[in-house]
């Protein structure tokens, strides 16, 4: 019995999501081997960080220029012979993990369990279904269990005293190489905390009415050291880019404080934030569904409330 943890990074740093996935992995039985795929020049720094995390016994590095950018086809094919030796394969349920794990699972003919929020027993897990409106307890009878982990349900793991042994593995060239070509990435850059790991998140919805009105939210976010999020409606309307989206199909967040501004609270949005510790909703419509899950309700026009909020912070 042993666990293979697939770690994620952005080319420079290890994703915090992987530390949460590692926490979930540490609740399973068996030694943990972490694996990381990166281009040559990226690998060392990320590997050192990963090796220093609690529970990691061994670390495999796959160095290849193909992994300069996310490449699920190449990585899944590379991981097949490695994965066969483990009882569990674990990755965070981020865009990266969701893209990769089912491909790997199918290649080794195993049925994945997605988005687990709790480990109940060696083959028993809890996961949300129907946008979090129901929680299912699932039992797997597979000999290898691929798992993706909802990161908000597991505290990121701490560091250990004795770093893991690092082993580099060469990969065999394979035919999957030419299935797709990387063209470009358009990444948003922000000085603010990352949405899924921020202590405070302030999100705007359709009620913001225009892209420039998000400045009111950003101003408050900067004072609170908060991340900025949005509802699907606000992203669809083009007020902010897709990486801001919180919801069933966007990012799942569970900060200490979530402030929803001008968000009505569709089921799909609630699915992405309802596990936040304190929820504040500001909306002029007293019947907005968001108020049903809010700890603090402010029924007021956001164009009145936000400037007053910013002023009160000074």
């Amino acid at each position: 019995m042993s666990v293979l943890l697939i770690a994620e990074h952005d080319g420079e740093t290890l994703a915090r999501a992987s530390q949460s996935a590692l926490r979930a992995a540490s609740l399973l039985k068996g030694d943990i081997t972490a694996v990381i795929a990166a281009a040559d020049e990226q690998a060392q720094k990320i590997a050192e960080k990963l090796a220093s995390l609690k529970g990691v016994k061994k670390l495999l590095i796959i160095k290849d220029q193909r992994f300069l950018h996310e490449d699920a086809e190449a990585l899944a094919a590379t991981l097949v012979p490695i994965a066969q030796n483990f009882k569990y394969i674990v990755v965070a349920a981020t865009g990266y993990g969701k893209n990769l794990m089912p491909r790997l699972a199918a290649l080794i003919d195993k049925q994945q369990v997605s988005d687990i929020i709790e480990v109940l027993a060696e083959n028993r897990f809890r996961r949300p279904i129907y946008a979090g409106n129901a929680i299912a307890t699932i039992e797997s009878s597979d000999s290898i269990i691929p798992l993706t982990v909802r990161t908000t349900a597991f505290e990121p793991i701490e560091e250990q005293d004795q770093p893991a042994v690092i082993e580099e593995i060469k990969i065999v060239e394979d035919a999957e190489h030419s299935l797709a070509e990387f063209i470009e990435e358009k990444l948003s850059s922000s000085e603010r905390p990352e949405l899924t790991s921020a202590q405070i998140v302030i999100s705007g919805g359709r009620g913001m009415q225009a892209s420039e009105n998000f400045q009111m939210i950003e101003k408050i976010a900067d004072k609170l050291k908060a991340a900025v999020g949005a509802s699907r409606a606000a992203v669809d309307a083009g007020y902010v880019t897709n990486d801001y989206q919180v919801g069933q199909t966007g990012k799942i967040v569970a900060p200490e404080l979530y402030i929803a501004v001008g968000i009505s609270g569709a089921i799909q949005h609630l699915a992405g934030m309802k596990d936040s510790k304190i929820i504040v909703a500001i909306n002029k419509d007293p019947d907005a569904p968001i108020f049903r899950i809010a700890d603090y309700r402010l029924v007021e026009d956001l164009f009145v409330a936000l400037p007053e909020f910013a002023k009160a912070l000074e």
Partner: peptide, 13 residues
């Protein structure tokens, strides 16, 4: 593709 950090463009054969 909509990825966590923004957008990624791939050309598929």
């Amino acid at each position: 593709r909509e990825i966590d950090g923004g957008l990624q463009i791939r050309e598929m054969h």
